[in-house]
Design a protein around this nucleic acid. Structure first.
Length: 707
DNA sequence: AGCATT
DNA sequence: AACGGCTAATGCG
């Protein structure tokens, strides 16, 4: 304590930092690639010095990241729709002439007008010419595809697949995609006749084995005064502890013995390694030396705290090449030798929280998430280190690193697998998967799909420009368009109630009715008679919509293959769990695709498309009610995609299901059967007892009577 | 009471 | 930074 007080009072004994590099051969490692290296593509980035995109592969044999630099002479670019001669004389272009490699004419397909068009492609020496600075071309000229990250662009253009296996044959050869042998349980589906080529590609890509990934978690402690929270932007207090927990069994706490209270006996008191240092610089140096041996770094809030703090403290203390190891972005921190996963960002992601983990945790903190998912939390909370014995802080700090690591390893590496699978679905590098939201995941894959079809990606205002007419007033004030239909419940206790529902209604509608931003109110005259019920919105009959196709294929492989595999008792648990991760990740995408279509922040937002989905949904449930009544069935309630039918003749239910399937091409199925269900006058509030005796309660919360 | 807001 | 519908609590002439 005394030394802390002294330190706080200003006696910081600032020695002149020795300019010294952290010893490492990590840079050298990247200059050569051993022939025959097998790697999984996990990351990519752009190197401004060499002006090249590069890829990060996880070497599955040596468990390190291998970096491969572009050899194809690929460059950043953007498109211009107007006259190429005019463009060449545009002042903004003239100003940037020395940074423009070429302007060439290219043929693309305009998906909104369904026609081939000639566009000018501006090829630049570096990405900032296109976008990212105030002087960039996109600030002066209306450009197309000018806001795609360059390294993402690179992956799309060369058709690289994130999460896929590659063989690296040297620095000068383009990595070649290789495929592991398809496991028999998946092969069975590949050979089946109702699986098309598109589905096959997805099946092979997603089901490929995800190996255990070597990784280390890291957590730092800062010796700050009471009541002051250390700031990564201005790291004025020393790091005095760094805890590490790795997949290869390394468990270690590095301590800078700031109060000189430890001795030789300290290390033996713990079930993990403890290394003691007498200054902060050696502590940081040692930590970097260790984590550099790991291709994947796991933190909890490392983007905004641990990594920037380490980098800035280290630089203050003269560890000058930390800037080449930890790269600080505006809102992230990346490590050059590997991949940094910040679990705080990942678990904060609404789709991860609510869909992947069913809202299991509430507060986004290490303690709360660990408590919910691992069943154990932090050690007792420490408010102020100054009063706590060093040995106790060591245990506390170690626990954080342990929990952070275990959040990636519990349930057979569920989280690591999930991250890789999302990367495969979105074709997005792991760093971005962990930091961006579901709309970005979807956008990323859609951009790649546009490239594959040679579609020029429309600007959002072009999509809007097709017209935003909505046909019905939203029920709820402040909403943009009408949503689901909820049928007025018949209050009372009803016995033998069968609930039928449409299987993933909105995604099925998007798939079956060809809903996409370019197919709703398409350009063709001959499609204008294909109307959404009760509207003047029409849907294309000539071309498959890009979003419809995407949601269709991932819906099909989820329902037809991965859901089945996840329940296949002939497979071992590890495999079942893996297939369960895949079907769960697919579900996140499938459900969100309709949602983002109705979100104006989404670049492919189109209100009439979102409204068409809900209107078809309303139409479907209304038709089902009509059909049920025709069959003499009694409908007592329904919500969005479900009908509650009282005491039905089972044959009539089957007739209803087959009739609807024939008429609407939507699958209706019996979801559950209640022995009895009690409905009130309120929608979305009921309870019932199912056939197996279990109780089902919706919307009702326990309340005290006021009397 | 009735509407707006969360 | 995924949608809308619905219930309940709270605030305010």
């Amino acid at each position: 304590m005394a030394s802390l007080d002294k330190w706080l009072s200003g006696d910081r004994r600032r020695e002149v930092p020795r300019m010294e590099e952290v010893k490492s051969d990590s840079i050298k490692k990247f200059t050569e690639i051993k022939e025959g290296t097998i790697g999984i593509l996990l990351g990519s980035d752009y190197n401004p010095e060499s002006r090249k995109a590069f890829l990060k592969f996880y070497d599955v044999k040596n468990h390190r990241i291998v970096i491969w630099y572009d050899t194809t002479n690929h460059h950043p670019y953007a498109y211009y729709k107007g006259d190429i001669k005019e463009l060449e004389n545009n002042p903004a272009i003239l100003r940037k002439r020395d940074k423009i490699i070429d302007i060439i004419e290219e043929e693309k397909i305009d998906p909104l007008n369904d026609e081939k068009i000639k566009v000018a492609k501006i090829i630049a020496k570096d990405p900032l010419v296109i976008g990212g600075s105030r002087e960039s071309l996109r600030e002066y000229i209306t450009l197309w595809e000018a806001d795609i990250k360059y390294y993402a662009n690179y992956i799309f253009d060369l058709d690289f697949e994130v999460g896929g296996y590659y063989i690296l044959e040297g620095v000068d050869k383009i990595p070649k995609r290789i495929h592991l042998e398809v496991p028999p349980e998946v092969k069975k589906f590949l050979d089946s006749p109702n699986i098309d080529e598109n589905m096959k590609d997805w099946l092979i890509r997603l089901s490929e084995y995800v190996p255990p990934l070597k990784r280390i978690s890291l957590d730092i402690e800062v010796y700050n005064p009471r009541g002051i929270v250390p700031q990564a932007e201005n790291p004025e207090f020393p790091i005095f502890m760094i805890s590490l927990y790795a997949s290869d069994g390394l468990k270690k706490v590095l301590v800078y013995d700031i109060r000189s209270e430890l001795d030789e006996s300290t290390a033996s008191k713990f079930e993990f390694d403890v290394e003691v240092f007498n200054n902060e610089r050696d502590l940081i140096k040692r930590a970097i030396e260790i984590i550099e041996e790991y291709p994947i770094i796991i933190t909890f809030n490392g983007d905004n705290f641990d990594l920037p703090y380490i980098r800035r403290r280290g630089e203050k203390l003269g560890l000058i090449d930390l800037k080449d190891k930890i790269r600080l972005g505006r809102n992230d921190a990346r490590v050059t030798w590997g991949i940094h996963i910040d679990l705080y960002k990942f678990f904060k992601n609404v789709s991860i929280k609510n869909y992947a983990f069913g809202g299991a945790y509430d507060v986004i903190s290490l303690d709360s998430i660990a408590q919910s998912l691992l069943g154990k939390g932090k050690t007792e909370k420490i408010e102020y280190f100054g009063e706590i014995p060093m040995e106790e802080i060591i245990r506390y700090s170690f626990r954080d690193a342990e929990l952070t690591y275990e959040l990636t390893s519990f349930n057979r590496d569920l989280v690591m697998r999930l991250i890789i699978i999302i990367g495969r679905i979105a074709n997005m590098v792991i760093d971005d998967v962990c930091r961006l939201s579901v709309s970005n995941w979807i956008k990323n894959r859609l951009i790649h799909l546009h490239r594959k079809k040679n579609y020029l990606i429309p600007r959002p205002e072009e999509i809007k420009g097709k017209g935003e007419k909505r046909h019905f007033q939203p029920i709820t004030k402040g909403k943009k368009y009408v949503g689901a239909l909820v049928i007025e419940p018949k209050p009372g206790i009803h016995f033998n109630v069968h609930v039928v529902d449409f299987a993933s209604l909105y995604p099925s509608i998007m798939k079956e009715y060809n809903i996409s931003y370019e197919t709703v109110n398409c350009v063709h005259e001959e499609c204008r008679d294909n109307l959404v019920p009760d509207t003047t919105t029409w849907i294309c009959k000539k071309k498959r919509g890009i979003i419809s196709e995407f949601v269709g294929v991932i819906r099909d492989i989820r329902v037809d293959v991965f859901k089945k595999l996840s329940k296949d008792k002939t497979l071992d648990e590890d495999k079942r769990e893996f297939y369960n991760v895949i079907q769960g990740a697919l579900k996140v995408f499938i459900n969100a695709i309709y949602g983002v279509t109705g979100s104006d922040a989404f670049p492919f937002y189109y209100l009439p498309a979102a409204e068409a989905v809900t209107l078809y949904g309303r139409y479907a449930i209304n038709r089902a009610v009509e059909k049920a009544l025709e069959l003499g069935l009694e409908v007592i309630y329904g919500d969005t995609d479900s009908l509650f039918i009282k005491n039905p003749d089972p044959n009539k239910i089957n007739e209803l299901i087959s009739g609807i399937e024939k008429e609407l091409h939507l699958k209706l199925e019996v979801d559950k059967i209640y022995r009895y269900v009690a409905l009130s006058t309120r929608k979305k509030n009921y309870f019932g007892v199912l056939k197996d005796g279990s109780i089902d309660i919706k919307g009702l919360v326990g309340k005290k009577s006021s009397t």
